[in-house]
């Protein structure tokens, strides 16, 4: 069950901190090498062919993404991104359902991320990274993880999302509904902005797909014909957004 890992981070103390944590909390992970930048990172990957790469997002000679882009082939390892504070990057990771850790690293979250990385196939990882790179100019695609696979959706094809316990059902244009293993709260945070609005505790809708509003029943009819309830308290907010867009 032993897995090999390398740590790529331009600060030696950061490397040491993470190695210490891995030794203590993830004894199955062998840190076989480390590197301090994009160039040496690429060499380390080539030399060691690791199972797992901890990749710092911002380094002196480039960002972590550069390494992934400069790989000769598709990555054959799992990546866990590590960053101190970068909103933009974090949002990008979340859109692709990629794991990331924040510095200083929380031991519990480290164990969780490593456990997950061990289970995911390298192929799935390579696909997520592809989407991450495609999304560079804005988050156009989103990875929707389900029990043992994932679905890639265009953000502007999402008609609405509905809470279902700890799951969320995505209703999409031209596709079957998808049952996704994350809460609606998480997608609300991720998608809310000009287009998406939470109109009910169980409903997040894409305002561009609103067909009609029925004030009497306090319902919206979406372009796919679905009727969605607008909660009493959200009515004002909903109307304001509807007319501003």
């Amino acid at each position: 069950m032993n897995k090999s890992a390398i740590i790529i981070d331009d600060e030696l103390t950061s490397v040491e901190a993470l190695r210490g944590l891995l030794n203590r909390y993830c004894p199955d992970i062998n840190v076989v090498d480390f590197a301090h930048g994009v160039v040496s990172g690429l060499q380390a990957i080539e030399k060691n062919n690791p199972d797992l790469v901890f990749l710092d997002v911002e380094m002196k000679d480039g960002v972590g993404f550069d390494i992934l882009q400069q790989l000769p082939d598709e990555p054959t390892f799992q990546v866990i991104f590590v960053t101190a504070f970068d909103h933009y990057a974090i949002k990008a990771f979340r859109f692709c359902a990629l794991d990331y850790l924040l510095k200083p690293v929380d031991p519990d979250l480290l164990v969780q991320a490593v456990d997950k990385a061990v289970k995911v196939s390298n192929e799935a990882m390579a696909n997520k990274i592809k989407i991450l790179q495609k999304n560079k100019n804005g988050n156009e695609k989103i990875v929707l993880p389900s029990k043992d696979e994932f679905f890639v959706a265009e953000v502007n094809e999402i008609i609405r999302c509905e809470a279902n316990g700890n799951y969320t059902i995505f209703y999409l244009k031209n596709h079957q509904p998808q049952l996704v293993s994350k809460t609606l709260k998480e997608f609300d945070e991720l998608l809310s902005g000009s287009k998406f609005l939470r109109i009910h505790k169980s409903h997040l809708i894409n305002l561009e797909f609103v067909e009609r509003y029925l004030p009497k029943d306090s319902q919206v009819i979406m372009k796919d014909g679905a009727r969605v309830e607008v909660s009493r308290r959200r009515k004002d907010v909903f109307l304001k957004y509807l007319f501003n867009n």
Binding site: G20, L21, R24, F85, L102, K103, P104, D106, L109
Partner: peptide, 17 residues
């Protein structure tokens, strides 16, 4: 007590964030 130090630090960082 490295374990406590680690957990405390992670929590502290979360709060600061």
């Amino acid at each position: 007590d490295s374990d406590k130090a680690n957990r405390f630090l992670a929590c502290y960082a979360r709060l600061m964030r």
